[in-house]
Design a protein around this nucleic acid. Structure first.
Length: 134
RNA sequence: GAAGUUCGCCAGGCAGUCGCUGCGUACCUCGGUGCGUGGAGGAAAGUCCGGGCCCCGUAGAGCAGGAUGCCGGCUAACGGCCGGGCGCCGUGAGGCGACGGAAAGUGCAACAGAAAGCAAACCGCCGAUGGCCAGAUCUGCCGCCGCAAGGCGGCAGCGUCUUUUGGAGUGCAAGCUCCGGCACAGGUAAGGGUGAAACGGUGGGGUAAGAGCCCACCGCAGGACUGGCAACAGGACCUGGCACGGUAAACCCCAUCCGGGGCAAGGCCAAAUAGGGGAGCAUUGGCGUGGCUCGCGUCGCUCCCGGGUAGGCUGCUAGAGCGGCGCGGUAACGCGUCGCCCAGAGGAAUGACUGCCCGAUGCCGUUGGUGCAAGCCGCGGCGUUCGACAGAACCCGGCUUAUCGGCGAACUUCCCAA
């Protein structure tokens, strides 16, 4: 699997993935149930970035799965919360095939009002890179 | 041309790539893939009203409680909308208004002020009417001051004295008339001053001074009349000299309306575990009861039934629907007809990236316009982040709040030109 160079700011070359890469984001790649959320948090492993806290727990499903948590306290408006989630999912979607099999929860833990999209993207990319790999 | 008012509309655009999701369809390994097609708002927001829908309750009526509150209309309904009236604001187009009752009762009114509700009178004005307009001395009594002697003041006496008592006239006299003074009784509410608010306004007459005390006009109240469905309005009517102050988002009274709870409503399916009911098997089983047998209870296995948790399905989007045309109505809206199908998620889709354009913003430049100049406007270049407010959660009708900017129509005021 060719490794895409991780530029800090997205470049056009990054957008065009090699043919055949699975960039879909289907239901199987998400966390849905309350039990799934609880078990990830109970595993008590997390990486702290500037904006996100990335909780993780290895699974045996052969793929990474993601959920995003945005507290109302940190983003008051519903449209802002939705936007943060969408941006986070987009990063995950692009990176999924390169990630270890684990359940992930990206939890916003800092106010996002002054951050730009590039800041958020960079933060989450770095966190995903730091995930422990087998 | 500038400034503004009202109403309606839009809510960055186009292209490409990668995704999410509903529906239809074809294929297969039954989970996907391909193709087609749809996928946030004017406020989706606040959850403030009204309704549909659902469950519960309910003979009927009343009480309590809540909401509304000029009139007429519209509507499924409303606290909404339309039209009208009245009041206030604006030069105007227009805007704003919980806008029923104070003559049913109870209450409240800080500060100021004499006085805050039924009359009263602080300063002031008047003093018509009534009263007063010598002093000294003596006696008695009372009060105050003083240790006392005494002093000061008040009241009383048909007391005493004097140039006979504010001045003038008159009379024998009691007295009477005129003039003046005091402001004691009393009169007054014009004026001053306070206040958010003080018992009509202006002018004249009148008076001691004043006053609706009288008169004229204006205002006000009541009643007729006229116009209007009504709220209400009108003047060339009549009556009344004028009251009945304010406050009801104070209690209250009157009129009208309202059963409760919500899609986490409600319906269906239903694992695991525990427990309930029934049938059967084991019948020579174990344990308990008992001296023993029967019987009863309990334990085991199989099956069935009902309740029900996690979970799943449903409710779930075709509707007081949207658009066009015609007709009725000032309008809100209604009727008819034709066409259309227009989001249904569920840790929660409707997105991300790239390019060009549009807009915003910063810096720089500028034989451009304007200005003394700073600057402003225009134009060009570069960079940046960004694209107002904001994200459906059963569905509608409203209200309220948020909102960069743009477009259209009608109207108003001012300036210039003809």
């Amino acid at each position: 699997m060719p490794v895409v160079p991780r530029a800090v700011i997205a470049s056009p070359s990054e957008v065009t993935e090699p043919a055949g890469a699975d960039e879909r984001f289907r239901s199987a790649y998400r966390l849905h149930k309350t039990d799934e959320f609880s078990s990830v948090f109970a595993f008590r492993r997390a990486l702290r970035g500037k904006y996100y806290m990335l909780h993780y727990r290895p699974n045996d499903l052969g793929t990474a799965r993601l959920a995003v948590v945005v507290a109302k306290k940190l983003a008051k408006r519903a449209n802002v919360r939705n936007l943060v989630k969408r941006i986070a999912r987009e990063i995950f979607r692009r990176e999924r095939v390169n990630l270890p099999a684990a359940d992930l929860i990206a939890r916003l833990h800092a106010p996002v009002a002054l951050a730009t999209r590039a800041d958020l993207n960079r933060d989450l990319r770095q966190l995903l890179e730091r995930l422990p790999r087998p």
